[in-house]
């Protein structure tokens, strides 16, 4: 029996493998299971000029606040229990970032197209809305069949790197979710050239099924470049069932964002 290859890395090693100007997909949804340990690693780095692809939450907000994001591709940026993300708002209102605003379903089709190595997927979502107006590069495509319908051709959301956080993983990168929703983390892994997984706990491969059924094995090692053990690595967002969202911390985050002095004090958290 061969000994398993280890893809275990530190946050710093993952961040050190990234380059300015890259397109970075970030898993989770809103303020749920965001790879915050990896995002904080980027905040501490010299990286800049990133394009962020995300069902956005504080990941997007922080990357805007730290001047890391040049462009954001998202259907929303929200903290869920607090609807609006203060740093994303500030960046948009200052004209500091480029924004590609898609419908949620369009965004999923963009991920699916990339995961299937297709140039686009067609959908009705977006037709008639101003998503078509504010994304003048979006094209429609006519069905070649009898219906002849003209649908939105959602371009593949390809990305250089995907960052996702799951509950468990083994050293080779097989990753498992134990919460109620996989979100789209497997699609990010498949849409990216390289995927880095952080997890609450590294376990032996033989132990993966001790905590969840085979269906909970969401991401295959063939899609994964590196694995980081980062307990609490989604905080302050939720990582069910290991922990819920830290609502008190999230409220403090929003309150601190209201003024530069309080925000400077708060950012010590990024260096923890």
């Amino acid at each position: 029996m061969t000994s398993p290859i280890s893809k275990v890395m530190s946050v710093e090693e993952v961040v050190g493998s990234l380059e300015s100007g890259m397109t970075v997909g970030i898993g989770g949804w809103g303020s749920r299971r965001k790879p915050m340990a990896l995002v904080k690693g980027i905040l501490r780095s010299e990286l800049t000029d990133l394009t962020i692809v995300s069902y956005g939450g504080a990941d997007v907000g922080l990357l805007c606040a730290y001047g890391k994001a040049r462009k954001v591709v998202a259907p929303f940026v929200t903290l869920d229990s607090i609807p609006l993300e203060p740093h994303f708002r500030a960046a948009r209102q200052a004209g500091a970032i480029e924004f590609v605003e898609y419908d949620e379903g369009m965004f999923m089709f963009g991920l699916l197209a990339a995961a299937h190595r297709l140039p686009f997927l067609p959908t009705r979502a977006g037709l008639g809305s101003d998503v078509m107006r504010v994304n003048p590069s979006l094209r429609t495509v006519r069905s070649p069949y009898e219906d002849g319908e003209e649908l939105v051709a959602v371009p593949a959301l390809t990305m250089d790197v995907a960052l996702i956080h799951l509950n468990r993983a083994d050293r080779r990168g097989n990753a498992q979710y134990l919460g109620p929703d996989p979100y789209f983390d497997d699609l990010y892994a498949k849409a990216a050239d390289r995927c880095y997984v952080s997890c609450e706990r590294l376990v032996d491969t033989a132990d993966l099924l001790k905590e969840g059924p085979v269906q909970s094995l969401l991401v295959s090692r063939s899609m994964v470049t590196g694995v980081v053990e980062a307990p609490g690595g989604a905080r302050f967002t939720s990582c069910e069932p290991d922990y819920g969202r830290d609502e008190e911390f999230q409220r403090a985050y929003v309150a601190a964002a209201a003024a530069p002095e309080s925000w400077r004090e708060f950012t010590k958290w990024v260096h923890e």
Binding site: L84, R89, V131
Partner: peptide, 26 residues
Amino acid sequence: ISCIGDWARPTSQLLGVRGAPGNTAC
């Protein structure tokens, strides 16, 4: 539900369109 003002540089950024285009289309 997206933003108030000119989209290019809104006076108030709100949620983003979320699923509203697809919801109302389908």
